[in-house]
Nucleic acid binder design. Structure first.
Lengths: 343, 343
DNA sequence: TTGTAGGCGTTATCAC
DNA sequence: GTGATAACGCCTACAA
């Protein structure tokens, strides 16, 4: 049933090498025979077998992207950016997540199949020993997203979390005139949360504001969880110069909603800042002051690095750092040029 | 550099067939030699070459998923469901979109590479002739999501849009007591929008409510567009018994926001209904009455069908229909047991 | 239980 | 310009 290169050869009355030539280096073959072969290909509906091809060429033109999860706007953007760029570069993208099912299994499965992949981009977000181990003696070209792994040198594309969080904090203590800032992070072990917390603490110190352990919460990046937390605390937070700094937009949205539900007005009675600048940020009332993280660009850059490395495995490791950008909207009263509640 | 099966064979002092046997049918080989081979494998870090393997076995254990876009909660859910199920079934998933770049190119690219894929699930959402053509004489096992293609019979998993939209309309004209319903759809050519509009019109007729062309709008499923539209019309809509039926949650959220911004109260001054039940639905104030579309289940079912067909290409085409479910929250005042504004 | 040999569909290296 | 032929790494009768 499957038509192979030799079927085409017979039909066109040439040898298989000639067929192979018109497929790959048509300039080496006579125009007439070329035409004959091409029509044979068309008539037979011949499609080169990718396995045999890969066996010879040792590449599949498929690269992988492994993310902590595929759910939500954030990852969605990365995938989109990566997919788009990968295709531009002539590659197809395989997406996997470490969350669906057992993470190690998931990852290892992808790796077991690795000979089919030309390379992999990995985002870990939390470092487990297993992943660490797997990655250190990884034979396949790979690039790491949003973090760096100890051990072997490798390509990586990073978000300068510190920079972004610091910009936000400066905005809050400066233009917004905040004197108390509540930090609502994701999981305590999450890389991004850690980096943002560091910036938070540092900025507090710089501004000579007191740091209080009890103003720090670790949640799970989800809207509902944040809503619930805020429902409990929002009346206590509501103070002339208090802001909540959430580690992503969804949680910030939950907090805004809880504040509204409690009859408080944002930003008059309480400032709320988000992170990521996903579409939710423009869907709350008021829209969120947040930090734009160039997610799809991160995906795209990852693919560039990866494909470059596939082409030249020897090149020195590259490290790309992407700078987030402060986006001032209304949820912190920034436009008011003073403490946000003095409206 | 790459270690092959014969390296292992040498190291273990056996023939390559023996190595192959411990890899695939370990029961056929003596325990002792088996152990010897296995340790050789481990010591050498041997990984079977997937190309050579595929060349013999004629399968890759990779299946594809082609979506109109990868952006947003909706597709995100489908991908997640599909990915999860695919892995459970022992397959890896390749994701592509027809939107990034030229759609036909994109799709055809995936198809050109198809010998690497064992099968593909496709969601088209709008039918272009090219896609139609490509699909009708598709050699590869495939299943269609959320629609059916004329021509060759095939597996498909459908959302009963009609059922969902009708349930919503019944809810609006019944419990909510709506007398005028504004329809805000996606693109006029979009399958889902078409189906929902049909249900809308039908339900209006059944309820003996007047249909007015000027109460029908076609947008693009985006929050902002809907917000802008609603900003213009919301004061005119605001009537004792008027509801807006948006074709997805994001647009509904935009409409709610516009209403709030205009000083109207939802649902007292205007009812707003969404569709899909994505996370946004719980992030508006008030939360949206909407229709839950089992997206991740659709992805999962698609993979089941696909993998089953890969295993048995001869089986008769199956057609799975998933029923959406009405979710009553507060944006239409349903809980009020009467016209929503009488609060 | 194990080894030998042939073939899967390509591409690459030679000759001609 | 074109055609044999040898890899590529693996699986699987068939033989021993």
């Amino acid at each position: 049933m499957p038509v192979s290169i030799s079927d085409v050869a017979k039909r066109a009355n040439v040898s298989i090498s000639t067929v192979s030539r018109v497929l790959n280096r048509r300039e080496l073959v006579n125009d007439q025979t070329c035409a004959r072969v091409e029509s044979a290909i068309r008539e037979l509906g011949y499609q080169p077998n990718a396995f045999a091809r890969g066996l010879m060429l040792r590449k599949s033109e498929i690269v992988g992207l492994v993310l902590p999860d595929l759910h939500g706007e954030f990852y969605s953007q990365i995938i989109r950016g990566a997919n788009q760029r990968a295709r531009q570069l002539g590659y197809n993208l395989v997406v996997s997540s470490t969350r669906d099912g057992d993470d190690s299994h998931s990852l290892l499965h992808a790796i077991r199949q690795r000979t089919l992949l030309d390379g992999v981009a990995v985002m870990v977000s939390e470092l487990t020993d297993r992943i660490q181990d797997v990655l250190t003696d990884f034979r396949l070209p790979f690039v790491v997203l949003d973090d760096e792994i100890g051990g072997a040198p490798h390509d990586s594309v990073l978000i300068d979390q510190r920079h972004g969080a610091t910009a936000m904090m400066r905005h809050l203590v400066g233009p917004c005139g905040a004197k108390r800032i509540v930090f609502v992070g994701g999981l305590e072990t999450n890389f991004d949360t850690i980096a943002r917390f560091e910036a938070y603490r540092q900025a507090l110190a710089n501004a000579k504001l007191p740091f209080s352990r009890s103003d720090v919460y670790y949640l799970d990046y989800e809207y509902e969880t944040a809503y619930n937390l805020a429902s409990k605390h929002v009346r206590e937070w509501a103070a002339p110069d208090c802001c909540v700094f959430a580690a992503n937009d969804e949680m910030a949205a939950g907090i805004v909603a809880a504040a509204n539900a409690a009859g408080l007005s944002v930003p008059r009675d309480l400032g709320v800042a988000g992170f990521d600048d996903t579409r939710v940020a423009r869907m709350t009332r008021p829209p969120l002051t947040t930090v734009r993280v160039p997610m799809s660009e991160m995906g795209a850059k990852a693919m560039e690095l990866l494909c470059r490395r596939v082409a030249d495995p020897q090149r020195p490791p590259t490290r790309i750092s992407l700078k987030p950008e402060l986006i001032v909207r209304e949820s912190c009263g920034a436009d008011l040029c003073g403490p946000h509640r003095n409206r």
